[in-house]
């Protein structure tokens, strides 16, 4: 149930770690896995130390605190039911940042994501993720 003011973990390597939801796009209900939302970056990792994670592309797209970005919800603590009766819930809310064109900002996604992304045409994020449930 992602809505205004919900704090989410950002699990990609775009640089943001904690973001806050400010709007759900194209819907009047709360956000679920696979939905596109607008977020404000609340906390970001310090990049540009020359570490191995700081690639040049990521450094160019550096996400700073206070940035307004689009994101895709990948995990929700609210349980959701699938067509076959299975019900899945995660312990936290998480998202991955995307650009205006819908391409993910990060190049890796660390963590498990919901398999609903496939139905929502977010296969790019699903393939980046190391595990999906």
């Amino acid at each position: 149930m992602i809505q205004l003011k919900t704090m989410l973990n950002c699990i990609d390597n775009s640089g943001a770690t904690i973001v806050e939801c400010v709007a759900n796009l194209r819907m009047k209900r709360h956000g679920k896995v696979g939905d596109r939302i607008i977020v404000v970056v609340q906390k970001s990792r310090s990049m540009g130390d020359g570490g191995p994670g700081a690639t040049s592309a990521a450094a160019a797209n550096k996400v700073r605190r206070g940035d307004i970005r689009h994101a895709i919800i990948v995990r929700t603590a609210k349980k959701y039911q699938r067509k076959d009766g299975m019900v899945v819930r995660f312990d936290d809310n998480a998202c991955a940042l995307i650009g205006k064109n819908g391409e993910p900002l990060g190049t890796r996604i660390n963590g498990v994501v919901g398999a609903e992304l496939r139905n929502k045409q977010q296969s790019k994020i699903l393939s980046l993720a190391s595990m999906h449930v």
Partner: peptide, 12 residues
Amino acid sequence: RLMMTGVEMWVK
């Protein structure tokens, strides 16, 4: 717990 995240699943 998958990749540091707790996951729960109801299975029929």
